[in-house]
């Protein structure tokens, strides 16, 4: 009888091992990003990261412009000239746009820290509202500074 009981235990554990291996094999190894749908809240999140990294890169230009304009009158004129050019305008408006986005979605993040807009629907709505606020303010800044 003991032998049969042991056999039963062995059989059960063997089935378990098989199940685990099968489940593991069915798991996707790589996430295929183009097959996954991104809700607005996910897009808001990834853009928040991109805008942050973008500003870190743009800091070279910001710090240079700020410091050069402070150092001397000639430097101030140079920065004015550079920021008046097409590339300078694109960098300036682009950086301000990144900052606006990062701040808007950052405030949304803090509001979510406090326990609001955490549901699926509210999260997506607040993300879309953030996009609209960003687009409008970027448009205003772009028109004023161009």
């Amino acid at each position: 009888m003991k032998v049969f009981q042991n056999f039963d235990v062995l059989k059960q554990s063997l089935i378990k091992v098989l199940q685990v291996t099968v489940v593991k094999k069915q798991r996707p190894v790589n996430l295929q990003l183009n097959t996954i749908s991104f809700p607005p809240s996910a897009i808001a999140s990834i853009l928040h990261r991109i805008s942050g990294v973008g500003m870190f890169v743009a800091m070279v230009f910001i710090i240079w412009a700020w410091a050069t304009a402070l150092n001397s009158s000639e430097g101030f004129d140079l920065v004015r000239e550079v920021m008046g050019g097409i590339i300078g305008k694109i960098i300036t408006i682009g950086t301000i746009s990144l900052l606006i986005y990062h701040v808007i979605v950052g405030i949304r993040h803090v509001i979510m820290d406090m326990g609001h807009w955490e549901e699926l629907k509210a999260g997506n709505t607040s993300a879309i509202v953030s996009f609209i606020l960003w687009a409008v303010s970027t448009l205003v800044v772009g028109v004023v500074l161009w």
Partner: peptide, 12 residues
């Protein structure tokens, strides 16, 4: 680089 931004800014 992040430190350099900060230090450069403070010296200016």
């Amino acid at each position: 680089i992040a430190f350099a931004y900060m230090a450069y800014g403070l010296f200016v």
